[in-house]
Design a protein around this nucleic acid. Sequence first.
DNA 1: CGTGATTTGTACCGAGCGGTAGAGTGAACG
DNA 2: CGTTCACTCTACCGCTCGGTACAAATCACG
Lengths: 202, 202
Amino acid sequence: MRTETHTTGRPRAFDEETVLDRAAEVFWRHGYEGASLSALTSAMGINRPSLYATFGSKELLFRRAFTRYHETKVANARAALEQPTAYAAIEAFLRSSADALTTGDHPPGCLSIQGGLACSPENAHISETLAAGRAATETALEERLSRAAKEGDLPDGMDARALARFVMTLSEGHAVHAAAGASREDLQASVDIALRAVTVPH
Amino acid sequence: MRTETHTTGRPRAFDEETVLDRAAEVFWRHGYEGASLSALTSAMGINRPSLYATFGSKELLFRRAFTRYHETKVANARAALEQPTAYAAIEAFLRSSADALTTGDHPPGCLSIQGGLACSPENAHISETLAAGRAATETALEERLSRAAKEGDLPDGMDARALARFVMTLSEGHAVHAAAGASREDLQASVDIALRAVTVPH
DNA sequence: CGTGATTTGTACCGAGCGGTAGAGTGAACG
DNA sequence: CGTTCACTCTACCGCTCGGTACAAATCACG
């Protein structure tokens, strides 16, 4: 029943990570509460008992899917922070985010937001989990920019934490826009403007 | 049954706009799908048949509540656009939005986003309605900034539409942050940075 | 004060929800 | 080649959902 390696018996007819990705898409498009078990199982290509034997519950399935999402998609955006300068890191972060929000490989927007900004009271910790994921990304940004501040790599008087929040905010707003159908070019034009705020006035 | 003035009969025991505001709060906090009829009726202080006699359905109730929200809360932010310069209009828009997103008078964040970014397929037009509301605000911003462009009131080479999108995006991102508990000061510090993008470099 | 119109409260409807029981199925091992 | 064991499938569970029927309650008006 658990994910331990089993000894014998009938082998599983599906790949766990594949069906997780399919589940993530459904949550992404319809939100946690809007994703019914019927929609999930049919998208995953498995039936209910298999889902419950493998993942335990709808909520645990969601957490697994979200974790995987975070480790793949979000990690990608975080890699942008390794750029040598603060400006380059911010630009890479915003540009790769804008691209990811509008790629055809998965639903538009961001699972961390569409998954459930507001939930019924009994699912409140779903929104909290998503918020914690976003906060972790913002913290990563802040740490990168704090380092930049020490290196004299930020405009004078610019606070690393506030700048991290600004960048993260913009990216979240882009996710909202993308979910509503904004194009990649629309988002990149908005990034162009945001970057003006980061340049040192001469 | 309709909202026409009735001639006689037992008078209504509640005020329509008051219960609409209560309903809006529930939708705001829990989203359209997360707001159950039981939660709605108990917050509104009326019972189911009264709700249905007055508003027709959950969806129509939501639309009425959202319209009222738009005509009151959102109209407030739009008033900021009447400032004499583009910079002042943008600043007023962002600052008053940040305040509204974090006031204690109603739930944090923005009904246009928390109401339902992602819905189950049968409620898809709820998200579309919300998106249309946000798009209308963005269009208002764009029109104000187009006028500014004609008046030479925008930085050189700045596109009014892209700038409107940038400002709206930031405000939406702030709504996401506010829904997750960000403080007013946090949002205003992000506005400070955003405004740097709008100033003309000297 | 009785009559008609309307709202109110209770109690209920079918449908779909998340979740599960239990028999059937099939690969791996002796 | 038969036993074992995990997985798969159909059919179902209790519950809550959005929505409603119906009768009691309460006003305006003659």
